[in-house]
Design a protein around this nucleic acid. Sequence first.
DNA 1: CCAAACTGGTTTCATTTGTAACCATCTAAA
DNA 2: TTTAGATGGTTACAAATGAAACCAGTTTGG
Lengths: 147, 147
Amino acid sequence: MEILELETFLPYRLHRLADAVSREFSRIYKDRHGLTRPEWRTLAGLGQHGTMTATALGEQSAMHKTKVSRAVAELERRRWLTRKPDEKDRRIEHLTLTGTGLAAYREMVPLAKAFERDLLARLSAEERTAITSGLAALETSLVPSKG
Amino acid sequence: MEILELETFLPYRLHRLADAVSREFSRIYKDRHGLTRPEWRTLAGLGQHGTMTATALGEQSAMHKTKVSRAVAELERRRWLTRKPDEKDRRIEHLTLTGTGLAAYREMVPLAKAFERDLLARLSAEERTAITSGLAALETSLVPSKG
DNA sequence: CCAAACTGGTTTCATTTGTAACCATCTAAA
DNA sequence: TTTAGATGGTTACAAATGAAACCAGTTTGG
């Protein structure tokens, strides 16, 4: 009889690994600032791009628009971002981090980079190349925007 | 000012990729049989090992015990598995697939394997090696059981 | 000009999830 | 023994999530 070895099954491996990494990384935004992942990604998107619409945020960070909507509402409640209606199209809002939001972002960026660095530091140079190019290959073949 | 490029940030990339793969793969168990992911993993664990306890299932498939508990309850309701109390330790239940459960498992295994094969077929031989060994390297450095 | 279709974003509702509390049983130490 | 603590598993509760309905504003075709 044909069996499937779950431990070596690619979808399962990917998910378990992403989960473990995510859980570890979440300390940086959850423990320190009580952010959820959608909120962290929103912060990261705005920190990176300056000003974005909710739709753009959703595309950049692969989040459902309801997640974006809720994350934006919460960051606004904290006064970490502000909304500015578009002049031409009144459906659109331009989102920007406030000083407080930007300060939190600036504090977290080095921690995030250090986290990634430490993660990769446990691998050999060849292993680092392997994971980087392997992921890239799967991405181009799978993630819509990278199709 | 130091910024973080989300698109190339390892935790984000891993999560987005795992999510995309998972979503694709879920067709096989969700669309065809209306299973959730925990239910699918439970089925896969029992199909692979024959008989397991709930705790063992949780360890093998990296699921929280409440997920396991609920998945087992649902599969039992469908009569896809049965529980047999342990002779020595009455806290423990041994779980086994019924004929129906096994039939569903047998039907899904080739589909799962084909899914994985097709996924990898889009990559070159080097890329396949890269992703496989890259993931393995990260796993051993991160996933508890592989530590 | 006007209705139909579309788009940006929010809200509602049902489902899924994690945490913590819980029950029952077992183990170990006094 | 007895009792404190561990362990297998379930349940209650609150929070996070996705699908679909929704509102407002905009575009398109007739």
